[in-house]
């Protein structure tokens, strides 16, 4: 019983994260911009470090705002480069943004006490330290974004399915801005809780696993929710009983599942039925 009480908030938060990230994951996968969240997380971290340098207190409201400001600027750049130059694939831009963000963060880390520590913290995170208050705040925030996306589901989906679809360039860019901005808010909130790798795997692995078997949006969404939530709960209990860190346990579990399923699909002789 004690175990359940102790593991309550981590389980609740990982299920919440699986929900919102499973949804975004299907979009990201269809758009083929797999590493966007790592780049956004890195830029948010860079913003935080610059905020610290400017004299904002650690974990203060002002500091968070600086971090959000950076994220929004970079997302603006990202939505803009989408059509400005199709010669270079978007994924290359993402890589470059990530690289520059991390490079600058490493330079700044030399100037801030404990800066190097901060970089490691962004990478690993720790969901065991989650409180019920964090769960509630995340629930409200993710809920609002979820409702927002429910209303805009059609344009978002059609852009994800086919980047060169009917809408005018201006309209597409506006929708893209909205999409990436809400995505950025989720990532900036989620990364300090779970760390870059847990967020990345919850975003990509469930969506990728289910997309191997079906192309229907509805089935993909529900499938990734189930895989993400069940995977993280099993991962948490596994890490608890084996006494290893929880984030890495979930990452390895879901990651190996996806690679295993992919190999299974390849080995299978007949093509898997499309929905």
């Amino acid at each position: 019983m004690d175990t359940i009480i102790f593991l309550g908030p981590p389980i609740a938060i990982s299920v919440l994260l699986s929900m919102i990230l499973g949804y975004f994951g299907n979009h990201i996968l269809s758009r083929g911009i797999i590493f966007i969240d790592i780049a956004v997380a890195q830029i948010a971290a860079l913003g935080t470090m610059i905020g610290l340098l400017l004299g904002f207190a650690d974990e203060s409201f002002g500091l968070q705002m600086v971090s959000y400001a950076f994220t929004i600027i970079i997302i603006g750049v990202f939505a803009f480069t989408k059509f400005a130059n199709q010669k270079i694939p978007q994924e290359a831009y993402i890589g470059i943004i990530y690289c520059l963000g991390l490079g600058l963060a490493l330079l700044l880390a030399e100037r801030i006490s404990g800066g190097s520590n901060y970089i490691s913290k962004t990478i690993t995170g720790n969901i065991l330290w989650t409180t019920w208050k964090d769960v509630l705040i995340s629930f409200i925030l993710f809920g609002i974004i979820g409702v927002f996306h429910y209303f805009f589901q059609k344009p978002f989906r059609s852009i994800s399915n086919d980047p060169a679809h009917g809408d005018s360039l201006k309209k597409t860019r506006l929708y893209d801005m909205l999409f990436y901005m809400t995505f950025g808010i989720v990532i900036v909130k989620a990364v300090p809780i779970g760390g870059v790798f847990l967020i990345f795997i919850l975003l990509i692995a469930p969506a990728a696993s289910i997309t191997l078997f079906t192309q229907s949006w509805k089935k993909r969404l529900i499938g990734s929710w189930i895989i993400g939530a069940v995977g993280s709960v099993i991962g948490i209990f596994l890490s608890y009983s084996l006494n290893i860190s929880n984030g890495p346990a979930i990452v390895c579990l879901l990651g190996l599942l996806t690679v295993g399923l992919t190999l299974l699909v390849i080995v299978k002789k007949s093509p898997v039925g499309n929905a």
């Binding site: 996968l29 590493f35 790798f197 990728a208 990452v251 390895c252 990651g255 996806t258 992919t262 299978k268």
Partner: peptide, 21 residues
Amino acid sequence: KKVKIPLEALIGISYAVATTA
């Protein structure tokens, strides 16, 4: 051809698994 997800996704997953392992 049978795999309906981009290779980059599987590359990302291998990266995450290798790091956390």
